[in-house]
Simulated assay, not measured.
Amino acid sequence: MTTVLAAGDGFVAPELFVDAVREAAPERELTFRTLRTGWPVEPFGPVGEVHEASGTEEELLAALGDARIAVTQMAPFTRRVIEASPDLKLISVCRGGPVNVDISAATKAGVAVSFAPGRNAAAAAEFAVGMILAALRRIPGSDAELKAGNWRGDYYAYDNAGLELDGATAGLVGYGAIGARVARVLRAFGARVLVYDPYTDQAKAAVDGVELVELADLLRSSSVVSLHARLTPETTRLLNADNLALLPQGAALVNTARGGLLDYAPLPELLRSGRLGALALDVYDVEPPPPDWPLHDAPNVITTPHLGGATKQTAHRAAGIVAADVARFLRGERPAHLANPEVLDAGAAS
């Protein structure tokens, strides 16, 4: 009998994990422990040395017991938790990257760590396109004005009118699964799409009908810029005061990827000066933003509370991806999405 901990939360519930693992491995005798952390009602944050985690080390240790496998989204698998769980052999995280796991500690302890790339690509791409349209056409602001009793006919005046995607130049910073989906939609609207991504080659860009350019060229040419890069030391504050000044007057900027990609300090002045015509944000340098955050009262800003991946399909897809890797592990096969493949020699899982 193999014990599995299903450490879910308010988005991917423990029961969703349990059902997905049972469906993926119907032939195995499994017993389940469950834990539900407070996310998303309670914001995630650092726990110990890991980032973007929910819950405490103490409650996770109490739930783990003798579990050999853990499936989770946000639970904090810190060095302390891993070292205190000698029975644990696999942690499967249903996120695009296992940022809530101390990979070094897991590797040292012989614990394989798998993750779920692409789980929210469709949801995040659709949300980004929605934010782009909302920013270009002032949809949330005009809705709020009308509900407040203000008929803003002046929004139809030429100086206040929005922009179409048809014939516009859109710049995408990052061209992974999400960026590529966004590009397809923008091209269907009739936009010319520029891409900055050092890891994408010209051949792929040509097939997809997008143009690979340097970041400075993208910023100079794009009436709307949308961020889709991963956050790494190299991409931290990739967009900053110096290069944001290259944007055409009145450009729109959309960040639905990671707050750390963008330097938020220059944004209020860029909005007030009109260099930025609109700003749409789903992610922030501090989440949630504090009450005195300067962008709360800056003009033409759309803000949402990190909802890009929030669809029911994403939750089911995420649970299914990790459950498939759990089933592989139980059959003695290598999981498909390993963060530390060196832990498992060929045929080592059992």
Score class of each variant (00 low, 15 high):
Ala229Tyr: 01
Gln202Tyr: 07
Leu307Gln: 14
Ala67Trp: 10
Pro335Phe: 00
Leu267Tyr: 05
His337Glu: 08
Gly45Tyr: 07
Val343Phe: 05
Ala109Met: 13
Gly320Leu: 00
Ala67Arg: 10
Tyr155Gln: 13
Cys94Gly: 05
Leu307Ser: 13
Val81Gly: 03
Ala24Gly: 04
Gly277Asp: 13
Leu16Phe: 05
Thr200Cys: 14
Leu338Glu: 02
Leu344Glu: 05
Ala319Ile: 08
Gly162His: 12
Glu83Trp: 02
Ala168Trp: 11
Pro305Ser: 12
Gly209Ser: 08
Pro233Met: 03
Asn100Asp: 05
Ala112Asp: 11
Val129Trp: 03
Glu333Asp: 14
Ala310Gln: 13
Phe189Met: 12
Asn255Trp: 08
Pro305Thr: 12
Asn240Pro: 08
Leu253Ser: 12
Val195Lys: 14
Ala280Arg: 06
Arg187Tyr: 12
Glu211Gln: 13
Met74Gln: 14
Leu64Asp: 07
Tyr155Pro: 01
Val286Ala: 13
Leu330Ile: 11
Leu262Ile: 04
Leu88Pro: 05
Ser350Ile: 12
Gly96Tyr: 09
Ile139Phe: 06
Ala161Ser: 11
Asp154Pro: 01
Val12Tyr: 00
Arg28Leu: 06
Ala70Asp: 07
Leu219Val: 14
Pro76Ser: 01
Pro117Ser: 09
Tyr264Arg: 04
Gly38Tyr: 11
Thr107Asp: 07
Val301Gly: 00
Leu279Thr: 05
Glu57Ser: 14
Pro288Met: 00
Arg152Gln: 10
Tyr196Phe: 15
Ala106Gly: 02
Val185Cys: 13
Gly176Ser: 04
Ala13Phe: 09
Val101Ala: 01
Leu212Gln: 09
Ala63Asp: 06
Gly8Trp: 04
Thr56Met: 03
Arg272Asn: 11
Leu276Val: 15
Val99Asn: 15
Leu88Thr: 06
Thr236Lys: 12
Ala157Thr: 10
Gly45Cys: 12
Leu247Lys: 14
Met74Phe: 15
Asp201Gly: 11
Leu219Ala: 14
Gly179His: 04
Ser350Lys: 14
Ala257Val: 06
Leu267Pro: 02
Trp39Tyr: 15
Ala6Glu: 06
Ala183His: 04
Ala168Arg: 15
Thr2Ala: 04
Gln249Lys: 14
Glu58Asn: 05
Arg237Cys: 02
Ala84His: 11
Ala148Phe: 06
Arg181Lys: 15
Ala25Lys: 04
Glu27Met: 00
Gly332Asp: 10
Cys94Gln: 02
Ala257Phe: 00
Pro198Met: 07
